[in-house]
Structure formats: structure tokens, C-alpha cells
Design a binder for these strands. Structure first.
Lengths: 147, 147
DNA sequence: CTTGTTAGTTAAGTGGACTAAACTATATGC
DNA sequence: GCATATAGTTTAGTCCACTTAACTAACAAG
């Protein structure tokens, strides 16, 4: 058991505090919309990666095509998703957020943003500046790691 | 629709990147252990807040006492939780992580820490220092907000 | 001691996510 | 053109979280 670096320590401490709180908000919001976690996660995925096919969903969530198809179907029927034929391959479908779907995702993210804003609004200007710098570095690094 | 401050922008961008990635790791790990999300979340809660009673669980996850009792029972039978009588109130139970439960939680957190370490290991010493400072500020702020 | 409340359990039943298997329809390679 | 692979759907059935309701046991107050 090697001693963690100061950087690791700070990263982990922040992550633990953040995850715990954020998960609560996430599940709570999903429940309040009447969607299941699985369904809401699909909307989030679509928001993040943009339109995609059914198989992308099943791969991402490690479920069968059948399961993905069923979940997506519910979301289509609830009006959060649009399922169109892919013009370049007529077997495939093109899934994308509907207007309502995008609005729901936005709303969900706002709820989770609120806590972070709350967190920082009483910090000094200097502290805020440090945080902006640091998070921008991290966000850029995250984009690189994820390809 | 007011324009977000630079701080909000940085917070939100980081949060979105982080959440997306972190959720994937979280669900993946829970699945790999054979535990359901619900069950794993209870372990995480116990880790975070320490020993507590059954009603604390049902309140936290917004489920009935009956549901909590059943979930906890499975975790006890799997050897991840200990359920003892509360000496100060013999109606109540005292739930705590078993040795194996604590180990499992630790393991889950390590998996999620790994990505963050990956993220930062190629940054310059100066950048790392900035991140440590900023995250420590945020972590402290988070503790305050959560009382 | 009795009446009422609180913590938790048990049992029966509902609903949703999930799978395997059989199917349709389109694409691809020889 | 024919065989094979690929994208997705449908169906039947399983598992698990969750609820309601009925219950036990311990506490609290008169």
C-alpha cells in the first residue's frame, strides 16, 4: 500500500464528496420525471454523444439489442426521443433527442448545477479564479483521455 | 436566460465531463460485483455516513422501511453488512459495513479514482499544484454546504 | 397497566429491466 | 443470385426492487 500523492489525495477527496452528493441529485431527478434510471441514462447518453444507432445504446450500457429496443421504445412513446430510419443503411435506426427530450436533459443538468453554484458563490474572487483555472485544465485533460 | 458567469461555465463543463465518465464506471463496477445499483448504493451510504438504522436507509433512498429491510437483508446474507441490535433502543437496528463490505467499497472507489489519476498524471507540476489548491477549496466548501 | 407510537420484519403482489430465441428486413461477399 | 452477416423488433418468461398490509416487539406517557 503506497502512500498516495497530494494530488491523488485532493482528487479523491473531491470526487468522493462530489459523487455522493451528485448521485443523490441524479436519482432524485430521474425519479421525479417518472423515468427510470435506465431510461434517463439513455437520454443523457444521447445528449452527450449526439444521435446514434440502437447498437450504440446496447453497447454503451452493456445490454442486449432487445433490451435497448424496448427502453428506446418507451422513450419514443413518451415523446423524448425520435427514432428514424438511417438513410445510409435502412436496417439501422437513427436515434435523437426530441425537443422535449433535450429540454428534460437540460432541466436535469440545471438541478445538478445548482448545487455547484451554491458551493462556490461565497468564495473570494481569488479562490474563484483558481477554481476556474484548475477545472478548465481538468476538463481539457478529460477530453483528451476520452479520445 | 441570463449568461452564465465564467465560474459557472467552468464548473458545469467539468461536471458534465466528470459525471458522464464516472457514472459509467460506477454502474459497471456495481454490475461486476453481482450487486444491484440499489444494494451497492446502500454500501456507499454506509461508507459515507457510518453506521445507522434502517429508517435512515429508507429515508435516504426514499423507499419504504419494508424495501430497505429487504435490501439490507440481502446484503447481510451476502456478508457485506452487519445488522446488530441498537443497545440504546432495542427496536432499532445498527447497520454497519462488514470487513468484506468495506473492502468492496474501497475497491469500487479505487476503480473510479484510477481514471482521475490517469487524467492528471501527464500534467505539469504547476498545473497539478493549481488543481490541488482548487479542489481542496471545493471539497471544504462542499462539506460546509452539506452541514 | 394500558393505550398509542415507533422500528423493523414478513408476505403477497405489481411493475419494470432484462434475456434468449425466433423473426423481419436490409446489406455484403462470392 | 445465393449464402451469410448485420440491425433491429417481438414474445415469453425471469429476476429484482418496490409497495401495501398485517404483524411483532419495544418504548413512552397517562
Amino acid at each position: 500500500m503506497t502512500k498516495p500523492s497530494p494530488l491523488s489525495h485532493s482528487l479523491h477527496a473531491w470526487m468522493d464528496a462530489f459523487m455522493h452528493r451528485s448521485m443523490r441529485g441524479w436519482t432524485h431527478f430521474a425519479k421525479s420525471t417518472g423515468l427510470s434510471m435506465s431510461q434517463f441514462s439513455i437520454l443523457m447518453q444521447l445528449h452527450h454523444k449526439g444521435p446514434c444507432g440502437m447498437s450504440d445504446i446496447s453497447e454503451r450500457f452493456d445490454i442486449t439489442n432487445a433490451a435497448a429496443s424496448q427502453l428506446v421504445d418507451k422513450l419514443v412513446q413518451s415523446g423524448y426521443l425520435e427514432r428514424a430510419e438511417d438513410p445510409s443503411d435502412r436496417r439501422a435506426k437513427l436515434l435523437k433527442l426530441s425537443h422535449n427530450g433535450a429540454k428534460l436533459v437540460e432541466q436535469g443538468m440545471n438541478e445538478r448545477h445548482r448545487w455547484m453554484d451554491e458551493l462556490t458563490k461565497n468564495l473570494s474572487a481569488d479562490e474563484q479564479k483558481k477554481i476556474i483555472e484548475a477545472l478548465d485544465i481538468l476538463t481539457k485533460a478529460a477530453k483528451n483521455v476520452d479520445k
